[in-house]
């Protein structure tokens, strides 16, 4: 009998995030991503229509990952847990994943950030991205970003767990979260569920303000 596959997913509560970037830093620390522009997870705050909207996002481990399908070297796979995993040894720098991903999460470091290539790598800087802290999951721990979230805005678990625990959360989609789709709006079924912040307008300063 075939083992039933599961799909792990992230949850993010937009109303609880205070933009501290603990997730960003904890991710870099745990996964040994050196300081520099590449970050597997980043927290941004988007300003839109007079409101501001935090979003902490890494790879969304899509059910239909656009990156996986375009890789000519089969470096990207989908595990039985639903993790979209890159085998950096197989990457030959085609960069097709980078343009395919709607969220620009596959990334390539520069020499300063990644000075020492591994012998097993075929290129100096193979693609890298979030692997859901596979090593932590194996030990029964949650990913570093979730564990470090000061505002308890992040959670992690199977898709079933996320949907049953947070019934109000919506799957990441271009109409609710246009700012997340930086490359394209391909439908990839992201494993990322968000509790939406309803628009809270910044109090626009009065036009009477003395300048």
């Amino acid at each position: 009998m075939a083992i039933e596959k599961i799909q792990y997913a992230f949850y993010f509560d937009q109303t609880r995030c205070m933009s501290c970037n603990s997730c960003t830093v904890a991710c870099k620390d745990w996964n040994q991503v050196e300081p520099g522009p590449v970050a597997w997870r980043k927290q941004f705050t988007y300003e839109k229509d007079g409101g501001f909207f935090p979003l902490s996002m890494g790879c969304n481990h899509c059910e239909e990952p656009a990156c996986k399908n375009v890789c000519p070297y089969n470096a990207i796979s989908k595990t039985d847990d639903g993790i979209v995993y890159v085998n950096r040894d197989l990457c030959q720098g085609a960069l097709s994943c980078i343009t395919a991903c709607p969220f620009a999460k596959p990334q390539i470091a520069g020499d300063k950030q990644e000075p020492n290539a591994l012998e097993s790598w075929k290129v100096q800087h193979p693609m890298q991205k979030c692997d859901m802290c596979k090593d932590r999951l194996d030990k029964g721990e949650k990913p570093a970003c979730v564990q470090s979230c000061v505002g308890r805005a992040l959670d992690f678990g199977t898709k079933d767990y996320i949907l049953s625990t947070y019934p109000g959360a919506v799957q990441l989609n271009p109409s609710d979260f246009p700012y997340a789709y930086v490359n394209n709006t391909n439908e990839t079924k992201p494993s990322f569920y968000v509790k939406k912040k309803t628009s809270i307008s910044i109090t626009k300063a009065s036009s009477n303000y003395v300048k």
């Binding site: 960003t24 050196e34 520099g36």
Partner: peptide, 23 residues
């Protein structure tokens, strides 16, 4: 601390957190 400094440093014309820190 480079991991924290890059959060509020920016390169010219760079996006938020575009600090060019290494270690």
């Amino acid at each position: 601390n480079p991991l924290l400094r890059e959060l509020n440093h920016r390169t010219i014309g760079g996006g938020w957190a575009s600090g060019n820190d290494w270690k």
